[in-house]
């Protein structure tokens, strides 16, 4: 049985490892974009401007209410359609092109991650004690310095557990991208199953790999939280 997972001609080890690499790339590419969207949406939802606030709240409510896989289909099919319409506009004779599933995956996952992380970040901003900011103003710090030196480190501490959960959820959600034909871990497993006719063995291995990635993330996150919580440890 171990031969099945060996590397090279006879085994599926290298194919599955390729899939793992795609999965990891997908998650790592999504994280900064998703966080960026999260900050923008959180700022919009906390803004004094009413229409902007409505957009912020509307976005989080919408994205959190939709199944992730539906968002993925909408982005993949919708953006593909839009892209081809634009190309047709440009040049009527152009061949329709395929929208890259990787980019569609990153956009869809980042949109979802952005909505959920906006809620976490908003909560963290609310948890920030106004006195901390006032103390910064009182020594004459500019709003910019206050944001980077006081607000952000404290928000980071409040938001880290929530963001950590979202990261693990997103890592798992990358599996959805296999449905739109991206060769991630899930998809490569499917290919292996088609050849070997051993679905249980291979899907179990896929599950174990995801599990391992989740557990690894948890360990790293616990370390990061410990680090971020230096200041509030009770003696």
């Amino acid at each position: 049985m171990f031969e099945l997972f060996s590397f090279g001609e006879n085994g599926w080890g290298d194919e599955i490892l390729d899939g793992v690499a795609i999965t990891a790339q997908l998650a790592i590419a999504t994280l900064p974009i998703g966080l960026f969207i999260g900050f923008i949406v959180a700022f919009a939802a906390m803004s004094k401007n009413k229409p902007l606030r409505a957009i912020g709240y509307g976005y989080t409510t919408l994205m959190r209410g939709l199944p992730e896989i539906l968002t993925l289909f909408v982005v993949y099919n919708g953006a593909g359609l839009l892209l081809n319409t634009i190309i047709k506009w440009w040049n009527v004779d152009a061949q329709p092109i395929d929208f890259s599933p990787f980019i569609a995956g990153v956009i869809a996952l980042a949109m979802v991650f952005g909505a959920f992380s906006a809620e976490v970040l908003r909560g963290a901003f609310n948890a920030l004690d106004e006195g901390q900011v006032e103390a910064g103003r009182a020594v004459g710090m500019s709003p910019n310095v206050i944001f980077w030196r006081i607000k952000l480190p404290q928000i980071w501490r409040f938001a880290l557990p929530g963001l950590g959960n979202l990261w693990i959820n997103m890592l798992k959600d990358t599996s959805l991208v296999s449905i739109i034909a991206l060769n991630d871990l899930m998809r490569m497993t499917k290919v292996a199953v088609a050849f070997t006719k051993q679905p249980f063995t291979f899907y179990l291995v896929a599950c174990l790999i995801y599990w391992l990635m989740s557990l690894l993330s948890e360990i790293i996150l616990a370390k990061m939280e410990q680090n971020a919580n230096r200041g509030i440890m009770r003696v």
Binding site: G131, A138, I150, P153, Q154, R230, G231
Partner: peptide, 10 residues
């Protein structure tokens, strides 16, 4: 300040 307002993360 009355409530000190020391930065808790430093």
């Amino acid at each position: 300040f009355q409530q000190f307002n020391l930065w808790t993360h430093r």
